[in-house]
Design a protein around this nucleic acid. Structure first.
Lengths: 238, 238
DNA sequence: AGGCTAGACAATGTCGGACATTGTTGCAAG
DNA sequence: CTTGCAACAATGTCCGACATTGTCTAGCCT
């Protein structure tokens, strides 16, 4: 071993992770979701690095789903940026029954989220769930597109668990759906038959009836899973 | 509206996703895990794009855990790459109760895996589960380190579900554990009290007793979760 | 005055070249 | 056979330029 004098604590610049520098800057400027990031040239200037390096870091953030970039337009933050975040990539092979496999994994997560929400949700969260359910019913009865309202309703349940990881993992699986097929769940009628059951689900959650809530959610998941697989089969055939 | 003749099916180059071009090249050269990627300049030459663009795509792959790059050394493939691979990033915020949140998500996944394995495992899978359990017991009774055997046992259960996604998502959470704390589950005694119950678990799975298997797994998970949280609390205090 | 269009501007995408830094490898000396 | 050194190779960073496209504003036409 040659004795080379490695500077131990002297690290004025950390080339190891430029993204960390960016995160620190975003934190410092108190930028949040929906805000626009400064242009690349300004980022490069403020961080004292070249635009190429900034671009690589931004590309990394983009692949991580933290930002979205628009040529000509700006760069927008779409997920929370933090210097203390953990990145866990997951790679899956696309096969014939990928859809049913994803659904099989999503199912216990959604059901457990309902169980925990029923158990630990506070008053405000229960009110939000009721509110979202009523909005969903209103849209559904009016015959309009109820999918955004449905998403908000389930998001309210995920929030009620107090565990954002549920929402994130489930969202990860949803993204996988969209990557698999361009928009299989944009079929307007998919899962429509389960919407009336959402009223019972919300009421069971708010009432704290864990067994009933879980049972209803299980039934809903079964229906949706079956419908999704039917549609996927149709796509494969066609 | 000016009538501009948009080429509908003519897309000789897709600037939208350079990574796809790379994936096609990797697939064509039949490169697998552990193989070295050609140098960036050669990739740029073969794809007909500049090195800057290649580098951004490689950065994306790096953040997705597909490759690892070594300055001066080469670029190695560490995850299966093909045009039919799906890469899903998950970012979690590191907070005080990250551990309990991860455990809360892992719990329903592990339990569901047991449920499905009990339901659909074929004869060979059931034999493997029994075999792994016996090996685990042998190591445990001998007072040796039983953690590798425990991992193999649970991996056998995951395999028995016929759904590799279960193993992958659970493994993803395990990686999060290791990134959070260097090795919280290397505590030799963690979960040791649950090992005897593994015999009952294996027997219930092989016997096809779904209710019993799920109940035992729930109890095991509760014990392990509690122990893990205790240890984490100790780490925080110390 | 109001709406619409065209042009200037801004921001990202891509390119090409250059140099720095570091791992790798092969050769020669001990 | 081992060790040390030098040449090479590959990634990291930087710079400058142009292309492409969204955004905004000023001016024109109705």
């Amino acid at each position: 071993m040659d004795v080379q004098p490695v500077p131990p604590a002297k690290e004025p610049r950390r080339p190891r992770d430029v993204a960390q520098l960016l995160a620190a800057l975003v934190e410092d400027k108190k930028l949040g979701i929906g805000d626009r990031l400064p242009p690349e040239v300004e980022l490069a200037r403020r961080l004292g690095i070249s635009r190429s390096t900034v671009r690589e870091a931004l590309r990394q953030w983009e692949s991580l789903g933290i930002i979205t970039r628009n040529k000509g337009g700006g760069t927008r933050i779409v997920a929370e940026v933090s210097t203390r975040s953990l990145h866990l990539p997951l790679t899956v092979q696309i096969e014939a029954d990928s859809l049913s496999r994803m659904l099989a994994v999503r199912r216990p997560l959604e059901i457990e989220a309902v169980r925990i929400a029923t158990r630990v949700a506070d008053e405000a969260a229960r009110r939000r769930i009721m509110l979202r359910m009523l909005e969903l019913m209103e849209v559904y009865d009016a015959g309009e597109d109820w999918r955004p309202a449905d998403r908000l309703f389930h998001a309210a349940i995920h929030d009620a668990t107090g565990n954002p990881l549920f929402a994130k993992v489930i969202h990860q699986i949803h993204r996988a759906f969209h990557d698999l097929y361009d928009a299989p769940f944009d079929q307007p009628q998919l899962g429509a038959s389960t919407i009336p059951a959402h009223r019972d689900l919300a009421e069971a959650i708010v009432a704290g009836d864990e067994g009933k809530a879980v049972a209803i959610m299980s039934a809903i998941m079964s229906d949706v899973d079956e419908a999704a697989i039917q549609i996927a089969r149709g796509l494969h055939a066609g």
